[in-house]
Computed example of a mutant assay.
Amino acid sequence: MTISSPTPPTGQAEAPIDFWPAQPLTPMRADWPNNRGRFIIPTRARGWHDFALSEWELQASAWEDFHPHDETNFVIEGELHIEADGTTVILRTGDAARVRGGRTGRYWAPDYARMVAVYGPNPEGLGSHSFKYRDL
Rank of each mutant, 00 (worst) to 15 (best):
A30D: 14
A109W: 03
F39I: 00
A109V: 01
T43M: 12
W48L: 05
I40W: 00
R44N: 10
S54Q: 12
L25K: 07
A113R: 03
S4N: 14
T26L: 11
N34L: 07
T10G: 08
A52G: 13
L53T: 01
P21M: 01
T26G: 09
T26A: 12
G101K: 05
I90K: 15
A45Y: 08
I17Y: 00
D18P: 01
I41A: 09
R134K: 15
F19Y: 14
P8A: 11
Y133P: 02
P8Q: 06
G78Q: 00
R38L: 11
L25A: 08
M1K: 14
D31G: 07
Q59K: 14
T104Y: 02
Q12D: 10
R36Q: 13
F66I: 09
R29P: 06
D135C: 08
G127M: 09
W20N: 13
E55I: 06
R100G: 12
F66C: 09
N34H: 14
S4H: 10
V99N: 01
M28Y: 10
T104E: 05
R100T: 14
I41P: 02
R134H: 13
E79L: 06
P9Y: 12
S130G: 13
Q23Y: 00
D85Y: 03
T2P: 02
G37L: 04
T88Q: 15
V118D: 01
